[in-house]
């Protein structure tokens, strides 16, 4: 007798879930093997993956909008750059101070701002990013304005500095894996469930005893920490920082990566960061039509995978709809 085999068997679903990770490993592996420019592009993608992981916590899990994450990346990046160049701090403590400063700023800003909802919250957070950008331009005695700060030491611990492309890539892979692990742990924790609940319905979450204001602020602080870490990584990988690095461009790119990768999924930020960073390289051959091809590809992805590429493979928990009730 012929037996029908279910296409949604647990083994098949588990394998499907690993696909985004496998693809990401493939891209990163290519960076290692090729070195040079491909390694640099993949390296930037990994820095963005950390940034988008934070954005995902706030937007994907709690369903809030923040156009101001670049502010926290700027605070982290500039703080670390100034402390290491002007005050000769070692890199790791300087990065720690940068992240702490950004989280403190997020606390001060978040408390009043997170009372806003929807479009108002989006506009409020956008203003934070714009103000930070202006401060980076105007506070020349510290930031050196448009000239920027150069000579920022590379990533490293103590006297050991990671200067090679491949070395930096390896370090960034480790940091991205740690960030993703933390994001996954948060998603499956009591705090993460509270994030998801308020993302689905604030009133519903409140009725279950979730302190909505506090939980929202917590998500904002954690996402600010990730943004600041990404800012720190960026300045130490590039060795230079200017206000343009943390401009509106960063926000738009972060959003694109999040939605292409998969908002609300654990793998989404990494997948989105890699795909969006590599697409311009893939379309380089189109010359004058490069931007057109890039835009068209984004539209196609968002039409056929509206919840992002990672969500296409995230079928593990889905079951056919029950028909008997």
């Amino acid at each position: 007798m012929k037996t029908l085999r279910s296409t949604t068997s647990p083994d098949w679903r588990s394998a499907l879930r690993l696909l985004p990770w496998g693809l990401s490993a493939l891209f990163v592996g290519y960076g290692f093997v090729a070195g040079g420019y491909p390694a640099t592009v993949i390296g930037f993608a990994l820095v963005y993956a950390v940034f988008v992981t934070g954005l995902n916590l706030f937007m994907g899990y709690t369903n809030q909008v923040s156009f101001g994450q670049n502010a926290f990346a700027a605070v982290g990046g500039y703080m670390s750059a100034v402390l290491t160049t002007t005050y000769q701090w070692p890199v790791v403590p300087a990065m720690g101070a940068g992240v702490a400063a950004a989280v403190l700023l997020a606390l001060v800003i978040g408390y009043p701002t997170l009372r806003l909802k929807g479009h108002y919250l989006a506009m409020g957070t956008l203003a934070i990013g714009l103000i930070t950008y202006e401060i980076a331009v105007e506070w020349q005695s510290v930031t050196q304005g448009y000239l920027g700060i150069s000579g920022i030491p590379p990533l490293g611990v103590g006297s050991y500095e990671v200067t090679s492309d491949r070395g930096q890539l390896a370090l960034l892979v480790a940091i991205v894996l740690a960030s993703t692990f933390i994001s996954a742990r948060i998603r499956d924790s009591r705090m993460g469930r509270a994030f998801l609940a308020l993302g689905a319905s604030e009133n519903g979450a409140m009725a279950l005893g979730v302190d909505v204001a506090r939980t929202k602020l917590l998500a904002f602080l954690v996402s600010a920490a990730f943004a600041a870490l990404a800012g720190c990584l960026f300045v130490h990988v590039v060795g230079y920082v200017s206000p343009e690095v943390f401009g509106l461009h960063m926000v738009i790119l972060g959003f694109t990566m999040l939605y292409v990768g998969g908002v609300g999924s654990v793998a989404g930020p990494l997948v989105g960061a890699l795909i969006v960073s590599l697409m311009p390289e893939v379309f380089r051959g189109f010359k004058d039509y490069q931007d057109l091809a890039y835009g068209a590809a984004l539209i196609v992805i968002l039409i056929y995978a509206p919840r992002g590429l990672a969500s296409l493979f995230d079928r593990a928990k889905a079951r056919p709809r029950s028909a008997d009730l």
Partner: peptide
């Protein structure tokens, strides 16, 4: 008012949110 993107178990865990650990 169930949370659709979460599993049945996660929804039940949320019901006991105030319980802590």
């Amino acid at each position: 008012g169930i949370f659709g993107p979460m599993t049945v178990e996660e929804n039940l865990q949320l019901g006991a949110y105030r319980l802590g650990r």
